[in-house]
Amino acid sequence: MDKNKLYWFLQITGWLAYALVSLFFASLTRGVTPILIGAYLSLATFYFLSTHVLRFIIKSKGWFDFPIEKLLIHIFIAISVLSVINTGVQMLIKIIFDIFDASEELAIGVLLANVIGNYIFYTLWSMIYFLYYFLSNYNSTLKYQAKINEIKLIQLRNQLNPHFIFNALNSVRALVDEDPRKAKSAITQLSNILRYALIVDKHKTIPFGEELNTVKDYLELETIRFEERLKVVYEIEDAAYQYRIPPMMLQTIVENAIKHGISNLMKGGIILIKCNIGILEDLYIWVKNSGQLREKKENSSKVGGHGISNTIERLKLIYNDRASFKIFNHGEEFVVTEIKIPKQSSNLE
């Protein structure tokens, strides 16, 4: 049942039950008369309406957002006012049904007892109302937090690329005996990459050189693993180092080039990273790798397509339409990924 339906259900059955129970007790001494029925139903209707108005005020004035002391004071005042009005309405009902006895009803003691009685019912209503709200809210906050944490965890895991890390560690283990110096530098490179992956999401863009250094560390580690099966060539124009680019973007492209390109080829292949400045001063980053884009099978599109759509989305968020992303087959042996990054506006830190 959704919250709104639940409210109406409880509101109607609750106050109806109030009317019936009161009627029952009254009937013990006075017997059931149409007048009594009419009077109690009218009273229940007033309770019904007045609590509904209270709910309207709570919702429209945003009482839920109040700090707890302020909330308690507001409720206390509201309930007090309602209790007094309700006492007045009770008298009105009695007058209408012609069972009003002024000498009895207007005595201070009776009036006070009436107000306190009403007060108890309004308090009960408020307790149920707020208790339900806080409990269900607490529950959904927990669920929401859990979901957010899960998403963050998946993101982090993707960023760390566990397949690469464990393979790299495995190569390093073998390297310790074979070439201890190389093993040492491999460990440094691996820690550079890990550190980079952990800190980058704090920035929207970073200097091109920083990203390129990580990519270089990464490719050197993969060269240890693939040995002669991986050749890397860099053709970087000096001006490229003045640009800022979104972090982990080039890195992701290069990782994909390894994962879908080199590692699927028995003989291995090359990766060429070329960066130059276009006529309109845009930065063009070209990654050319051995391999071929294949028509996606249904189940693989999730993995491959996700990285690409993610990159396109990020570019759009940061640069609107001024950046672009392309991936295509270059002849029958290579795949090219091309990103265009516009010349910097200084607010993208």
Binding site: S171, R173, A174, R225, M266
Partner: peptide, 13 residues
């Protein structure tokens, strides 16, 4: 295994 170092590592183990 397609990687020489991985084979070497397992061999030594």
């Amino acid at each position: 295994d397609d990687e020489r170092l991985a084979r070497k590592e397992l061999m030594s183990l």
